[in-house]
Amino acid sequence: MNKYLKTAYQFGTLGGILSIGSFIFLSFWNTDPTNLNLIFGYIITPIALFLGIKFFKDYTNSGYLSFAEGMTIGFVTYLLIGVISFLGIALILKVSPDLFASIQETKWSVLEENREVIISQVGIDSFELTQSNLKAMSFWDIALNDGIWKIIPGMFFSIIISIILRKNPN
């Protein structure tokens, strides 16, 4: 089992560190780096998954890859990316309450700017619920959201990449 996980650990850790790095980098340019960091996650997650599965196939498994092996490597990789990203962003927001306040304020202003559109689409009750949830938001919520949005697309990318790279011995 360890032969499956060595590559996944490497690329999952690398993807998580890159995700944290992008959050830090984007926080210098934007008052709310969360949305741009999610877009970066949609780029780095499939790349890390592809490289992890491809490296396993080529260098550990003699050029062969079953769907189950690809999914195992992919699962560990995207889970690590999500967990490392979650923990890193939570730590950053915990030690930088000004950044958290800036993110919360930006989200609040976007909500208020689009008040009429949101109310017309989902109703006043949903808008007011969103307002109350935004007031009660903590840094854990932001970090958890980022981690989840690394894991969910990772599941789909793992399936696709495992199918594409699959090669069974004859």
Rank of each mutant, 00 (worst) to 15 (best):
G82C: 10
E112Q: 09
N145V: 14
G154D: 12
L5M: 14
V95T: 14
R115T: 06
L38N: 02
A48Q: 01
Y9E: 11
G12D: 01
W149R: 15
L38P: 00
L18C: 08
L144Y: 10
D58I: 05
F25P: 04
I20R: 03
N37G: 10
N114V: 02
I20T: 04
G123Y: 07
Y64L: 12
F157E: 02
T77E: 06
E128N: 14
P33D: 04
T45N: 06
A136H: 05
E113Q: 08
F157R: 00
F139L: 13
N145W: 12
P97A: 14
W149N: 11
V110R: 14
V95L: 13
T34I: 04
S66H: 09
L165C: 14
S138T: 15
S126P: 12
R166W: 02
F75W: 09
Q131T: 13
L111N: 01
P153I: 07
S138R: 13
N30I: 06
L93C: 06
V95P: 10
T31D: 12
L80R: 01
F139E: 08
N2T: 14
L49R: 00
G16Y: 00
Q10W: 07
S85K: 02
I124H: 15
E128R: 15
G12A: 03
I92E: 06
Y4Q: 08
G12R: 00
Y59M: 12
K54E: 07
E116Q: 09
Q131N: 14
G147W: 00
A8D: 04
N35D: 15
P153N: 07
F23R: 00
G41S: 09
S85A: 10
I84F: 02
G16K: 04
L129K: 13
G21F: 05
W29Y: 15
L144I: 14
D98V: 13
F11V: 01
F100N: 08
I89Y: 07
L26P: 02
S162G: 06
Y78G: 02
I73L: 13
E69M: 08
T130A: 13
F40Q: 08
A143P: 03
K135M: 04
G74M: 03
N133R: 13
T13W: 03
W140A: 13
S109L: 14
I53D: 04
M155W: 14
I118H: 03
E105F: 15
F86A: 08
N170L: 12
F56P: 00
G88I: 05
L65N: 01
V117Q: 10
K107S: 10
L14H: 01
